[in-house]
Amino acid sequence: MIDRLLEVRGIWKEFGPLTVLADVSLDLGTHEVMAIVGPSGSGKSTLLRCINLLEPIDDGEILLDGVDIADPEFDADSVRRRIGIVFQAFNLFPHLSVLDNITLAPRKVLKMPEEEARVAADRLLARFDLADKRHEYPDRLSGGQQQRAAIIRALAMSPDLILLDEPTSALDPELVGEVLEVIETLAQDGMTMIVVSHELTFARAVADRVLFMDEGRVVEQGTPDQVLTAPTTERARRFLRLMTDSA
């Protein structure tokens, strides 16, 4: 029996007449890293938002530790604290310092004493090289620093799983490296993650498994070698050719 942290079973998501996710299934074991690739508009980000319950699904099941969290009667807040999400545009809270961004949820949701939350945050800040920015406000940070702060904010809740939605797409090219490095460190630590990314080299290096999506469907999934080197479908081949040509 494989230990399955997350099982997505045939989920559907529609926005009006538009089907964004059609019968998507995937599973993810603890300590596994999955990369999701595919053209824009293929439903990758929506899939993450559905797993995090930020978007309600229209059909299917999402099992976290065997419990269907997508059941409409399930307490969504208790799930979200176990699943961290890192957004493309960082979404840091602009009115709070980096430190307060990180400690807000541990204090308010986990009811952690302020001192304890601060010590934990400082440890993470030091580890990811942001200790000197702890009292800065987000608008004083570079994009790379903001995204690292956002990753730390998600980590501070000690989630079972972190979802990263194109974490480097909003960054200037020279800042991409520092963020990918953080994600790689997390992968080495055994953090379970799903990363939506256009960085194929990175996906190959970090991911245990790759999922290729197109038009709301999972077209291929397997090891990075299977999906990124020798894709079986024409659609995946065409996409990968485009990505490598432009790179």
């Binding site: 938002r49 545009a89 979404n91 840091l92 809270f93 949701v109």
Partner: peptide, 11 residues
């Protein structure tokens, strides 16, 4: 997106 970030942290 601010609310989304807050809710995603469990608030």
């Amino acid at each position: 997106s601010q609310t989304a970030a807050a809710r995603s942290l469990g608030l």
